[in-house]
Design a protein around this nucleic acid. Structure first.
Lengths: 121, 121
DNA sequence: TTTAATGCAAATACTTTGCAGGAAA
DNA sequence: TTTCCTGCAAAGTATTTGCATTAAA
């Protein structure tokens, strides 16, 4: 797989660490940076692979990418405005471990996302 | 807007109260029910409007609809053989509600999946 | 007759892939 | 040369919409 174009990552940072592929592409175009949409998508795939970014979905299904810290966490996302709060998942980690051992599973990971409507919407 | 075709709702129920438009359409086709994909989409829109169903997004962005008020469950999936266990999510529901109110969110739903290696693998 | 439901086909939007030209090692 | 990066164009998938036909009231 191809490596990430560094300008894609820096554009994502500049966008507030939260943007779709289309938006990153548009931003770069507006700045006069020469790049193809394909490269933006491929770079994001690669960043995702390296766990440098995280992917969520907007209400309309568009994928939005955001920079991700190293610690395992979850998100609480507003369905209306996209506002995102990072959640520490202590309780859910414990829950996952319990469920796993109850069912004889090992090496258990998990995904969890919360979504709703924030106080401003 | 057009009203919902009742067979769409009953197919969604039959699917376990959780399916995408494409899946509902395929299910109805397989059963020999005559319906168009357009009608399935329009019916789901209408059910959504009437708050009879709820919409979530799969990881790949496909919209999945579920009956409102269904006590939904989660899955524990073996990465190696695909064995799946249904999990009752009492603990996680409570967790989600707490997190939501702590952050001033309302109408909060969630997704959660566990994956690991089962005892046979 | 008037209104609502239906479904085909076309249009949209996002995303991925095939392929060939060019840059880098 | 060999390998990697790039981007156009085409393909793919999910979803919506225009429009004419049909069923129902």
């Amino acid at each position: 797989m191809s490596r990430s174009n560094p300008r894609v990552l820096s554009t994502l940072e500049r966008a507030g660490g939260f943007a779709s592929a289309q938006e990153i592409y548009a931003l770069m175009q507006r700045d006069g940076q020469q790049i193809g949409l394909t490269t933006v998508y491929r770079s994001l795939q690669s960043l995702l692979n390296d766990k440098i970014v995280d992917v969520l979905r907007r209400e309309d299904g568009e994928a939005i990418y955001r920079l991700c810290g190293e610690s395992h966490h979850h998100h609480l996302v507003c369905k209306s405005c996209g506002k995102t709060v990072e959640i520490e998942g202590g309780a859910i980690e414990k829950w996952a471990k319990n469920i796993a051992s109850e069912n004889g599973f090992r090496d258990v990971g998990h995904t969890a996302e919360l979504f709703g409507t924030c106080s401003n919407c």
